[in-house]
């Protein structure tokens, strides 16, 4: 099931820090985690990624995996370099006051299911 990124913004009460391809963008699954090696190995392409990490390398990982939308939880401060990188790559960055657990619950209610890549 595909869910529009626009609908994610609403469901999370999120602030859009970088719009990226938000207007047309959709996700087909979700992944949650704060270890970059874990995300790069296990997240599936086309997923929304929920994390508390907000430094620029998060965008590098998202780009390598093919993640169109990153949700940064707990209202973590996001570095300007992260936003710059995301703009270059066309990746949507959302920030929400929700915790990662709360955000995943809300995404699940939208119909997004967890996806894990099989190595």
């Amino acid at each position: 099931m595909k869910v529009r990124i626009r609908d994610i913004v609403e469901a999370l009460g999120a602030l859009v820090l970088v719009a990226g391809e938000m207007e047309r963008g959709e996700v087909s699954g979700g992944y949650c985690g704060d270890l970059l090696s874990d995300c790069i190995a296990n997240a599936e392409e086309g997923s929304v990624w929920v994390t508390v990490q907000s430094h620029p390398n998060v965008v590098a990982v998202a780009s390598l995996v093919g993640i169109p939308c990153i949700v940064i939880t707990n209202n973590q401060e996001v570095q300007e370099q992260t936003l710059e990188k995301a703009r270059e790559q066309g990746i949507t960055i959302l920030k929400t006051p929700l915790s990662s657990f709360e955000a995943v619950s809300a995404l699940s209610r939208l119909g997004i299911s967890g996806k894990k890549r099989h190595v």
């Binding site: 704060d34 270890l35 970059l36 090696s37 874990d38 790069i40 190995a41 994390t51 990490q53 430094h55 390398n57 998060v58």
Partner: peptide, 12 residues
């Protein structure tokens, strides 16, 4: 703290 160095690099 940045989410690196979790010890999965070489095994990945």
């Amino acid at each position: 703290e940045m989410g690196f160095g979790a010890g999965y690099g070489l095994s990945n």
